[in-house]
Amino acid sequence: MTEDALRLDAVHKSFGRLEVLRGIDLTLARHEVVALIGASGSGKSTLLRCINVLERIDRGRILLDGHDVTARGVDVNEVRRRVGIVFQAFNLFPHMTVLRNICLGPVEAQGLPREEAEERARGLLERFGLLDKVLDYPDRLSGGQQQRVAIVRALAMRPDVMLLDEVTSALDPELVAEVLDVIRELAEGGMTMILATHEMGFARDIAQRVAFLDDGVILEEGPPDRIFTDPQHPRTRRFLQRIIAAGRL
């Protein structure tokens, strides 16, 4: 139990000639919440997708519970079962009810009996106030509800780590709070999480650490109070000023 929940060592990733990640080092202790901030295009999504092995890294290591997930012969499906990811655009399956969306992973990837998966799904839906939506199709739900269902769908796999990629960016302002509440509850419940976000106020609130991604590296990281009030690096300062100017802190 002394292992870090997640550790990235000098992770590199390029798309063709575009080098997006240029040596990322990042460590998450168990139950830790890290907010990943950075300008649009800085590589936040790419980093999260690499951890979930949706993208293959070119160099470096990603250790989940001390095991290298990018090593040869590792079952990527097994890794993905332990790392939940939620996307900005929800990406629910439109042809399935809420219940089937949530049960697909547990039943088809984990081999859980359907009744058990449904029980698990209902439990989670109840916890997040969505039980009455169990048989609805995604297009009947509001954006906030869809995103909460997407979070529940990831949680139903009982992941060790959750990766949330700007999960409130696609939402109307009045729907943001209900999704943040869910994330807050997860944080309080001890979930290990990386939170790519533009919601600086929220990041400050629930993250133990903030990491600023800039030009393919983590330029600066530390407790939110320090990063937000006394950033060491001029580029961090400039980024935060722009955010403040945009009224998001």
Binding site: L54, N77, R80, I85, L92, L104, G105, A109, Q110
Partner: peptide, 15 residues
């Protein structure tokens, strides 16, 4: 993104 979503849950390519 639908495939990415399914794969991210640990489903095989075929599933």
């Amino acid at each position: 993104s639908q495939v990415a979503s399914a794969r991210s849950l640990g489903l095989s390519r075929w599933k």
